[in-house]
Simulated scan of single mutants.
Amino acid sequence: MQDAVVIIPTYNEIENIESIIMTVFNQDKAFHILVVDDNSPDGTASKVKELQKQFPQSLFLEMRQEKSGLGTAYIHGFKWCLKRDYKYIFEMDADFSHNPKDLIRLYNACHNLGAAVSIGSRYVKGINVVNWPLSRIILSYGASIYVKIITGMLIKDSTAGFICYHRSVLESINFDDIKFIGYAFQIEMKFKAYLKKFKIVEVPVIFTDRTKGQSKLSSSIILEAIFGVVSMKFKSIFNKEKE
């Protein structure tokens, strides 16, 4: 059984989906791919189904009825993966902002170096972001500093969405207790792993903003993160994160 699977959530990614799938499959290490599509009206799921004829044993598709948030898409994917024998479960965007060539580096950090969570970090060695406006860089980098101050996590890129989880981390988390569905979801997942004392490492990567398709980031998602971090921290203090 293949030991690693990459979850790619999609909504209107017809311009990117075939290229990202082919690029992941062309890496030196073999990965399976699970696409979780939120009923994209642009035909993203149909393209995946077409590609499944070429990769019937390594490309999988889960279709949801509506667009209901990045966090719920990943949780859907996590549950699917945990029913199988995958040992390493990845999060990755469909738009090439995360370089598929870095998958093996995240994998090695867990498989060879003993990390339970490896993060493709934009900020562990300076600021490695391409094609973002200054305002977006300030918002993202500032958010990571804010999260570090509030939570105490020694993670420089807490909002990163390019991640490898050892299955033991996901098995330890009660997904019903995950409160956030947008930007804050990534923070909450890392915080739960941190509280459970799993080894977390950051692997430096270069993040390149999408060139095709539209960004899904909105002001409401950002506000969820800003206010959610405080409530998340208070919950950990008063409830001691008993799950």
Rank of each mutant, 00 (worst) to 15 (best):
V201D: 01
W80N: 15
T159G: 13
E62Y: 11
G228Q: 09
I75D: 04
A4H: 08
F55S: 10
K212T: 13
A116F: 02
Q65E: 12
K125H: 07
E62K: 14
E188D: 15
V5I: 15
V24K: 01
E66G: 10
S215R: 08
G43L: 06
E171V: 07
G120I: 03
F207K: 07
F185D: 05
F227N: 13
D95L: 14
V203M: 03
I127Q: 05
I145N: 09
S231T: 14
K101R: 03
I206C: 02
Q2Y: 08
S46M: 09
K87P: 14
L70F: 10
P41E: 11
S19V: 13
A4V: 09
M1L: 07
S121Q: 00
R84E: 15
L61P: 12
W132Q: 12
K199T: 11
E66Q: 13
I127R: 05
N131I: 07
N26H: 04
F227W: 10
K83D: 15
M1E: 12
T151Y: 04
Y146T: 13
K235P: 02
D37I: 11
F198K: 02
M63K: 10
K240H: 07
K199Y: 00
T208K: 05
K199R: 05
S19G: 15
Q186I: 02
M153P: 01
K233Q: 13
K101Y: 02
H166P: 01
